[in-house]
């Protein structure tokens, strides 16, 4: 597979802060690639360097075989960048906005209107952008990034503040975009989003890439801990501890928050049989590790959504 993006050892310093500290990554053509990391991890700066908005202090970047810095007008029509939803011209309607963006690429109003329809905004085409709902503005923002039919699309936090239904609609749209053969690079606050959408993800912190791989491989690799939970009140935490020790069931954590007695273990079988013997299986939940656990283990901190 050819590379849509290749970055090698990029670094960027702002004053005392080393925002990006030697990031290398490679994204294949047609891939859906996610960059995860807590706030301040250097995701946005990395993305900006990839897009060609910022010049790295060190390192080399190529998009579609071309250097994005300095500003390369031959490359620009081939990439699409989605911004925060508020980055629109003032006092324009949705239709006027997307037609304006289309005009920058020499694209006529018909194609612009078709893109508006694709993101389901035909009915709101006459609404001023500052009167649109969060979900509508996000979709318009994505439509503006796609109006010139780019090969490579960058999405920076596309779904914050959306209701679950709007998020799911947006995910469908993003999957379709990718299925058409476009390479998509996404930064997100939401791990479920990365798990659902991305072929591969990189976890970043302190300006470095900590780990890269498919979501499934990352989960398998870091942890085979299973989380088990049952309804509280069937077994006290102290009694459970005794019973597990007696049965030789190793547990790594045990907690009763008043609603759920939850524990984690690498060997779920003896734990479950103890719970079954005690007839304490009401409300049983067994769950494997998620990207959230990967994240926690790699960065040592909770993911702040």
């Amino acid at each position: 597979m050819t590379e849509a993006i290749s970055a090698d050892g990029i670094r960027k310093r702002y004053g005392d802060v080393q925002a990006v500290d030697g990031v290398s990554l490679s994204v294949a053509t047609g891939e859906f690639y996610g960059i995860l990391g807590p706030n301040g991890a250097g995701k946005t700066t990395t993305l900006e360097i990839l897009e060609g908005i910022r010049e790295p202090d060190e390192g080399r970047v190529e998009l579609l075989g071309l250097a994005p810095w300095p500003r390369n007008t031959a490359l620009l029509p081939r990439i699409g960048v989605q911004f925060q939803a508020s980055a629109f011209f003032v006092k324009l309607t949705a239709r006027e906005t997307i037609r304006t963006f289309a005009s920058f690429y020499g694209i006529g109003p018909k194609r612009a209107d078709a893109m508006l329809e694709r993101v389901g905004l035909t009915d709101s085409a006459g609404v001023l952008t500052d009167k649109m709902s969060g979900g509508q503005a996000q979709r318009l923002s994505i439509a503006c990034a796609l109006v010139h039919d780019p090969e490579l699309v960058f999405l920076d936090e596309p779904t914050p503040g959306l209701d679950p239904q709007a998020r799911r609609n947006l995910w469908d749209l993003l999957r379709d975009i990718n299925a058409e053969g476009r390479t998509v690079v996404l930064t997100t606050h939401y791990l479920d989003e990365a798990e659902v959408l991305c072929d591969r993800v990189s976890v970043m912190d302190h300006g470095k890439v900590l780990k890269t791989g498919t979501p499934a491989a990352l989960v398998r690799e870091i942890d085979d801990t299973v989380r088990v939970g049952v309804e509280s009140g069937q077994l006290t935490a102290a009694r459970a501890r005794e019973l597990f020790a007696a049965a030789g069931a190793e547990i790594t954590g045990l907690e009763d928050d008043g609603a759920t007695l939850s524990l984690s273990t690498r060997l779920p079988a003896p734990v479950l049989s103890v719970l079954a013997e005690q007839n304490a299986l009401r409300g049983l939940e067994v769950r494997g590790a998620t990207l959230e656990d990967v994240f926690l283990q790699l960065t040592g901190r909770e993911y702040r959504a």
Binding site: G30, E31, N178
Partner: peptide
């Protein structure tokens, strides 16, 4: 997940001159 079954269409603008775009 990643498919390349549909080739990406090149923007029509590619064939137009830079003057028209301007």
């Amino acid at each position: 997940m990643s498919t390349t079954s549909t080739p990406v269409r090149r923007p029509e603008s590619g064939s137009e001159s830079a003057g028209t775009e301007r």
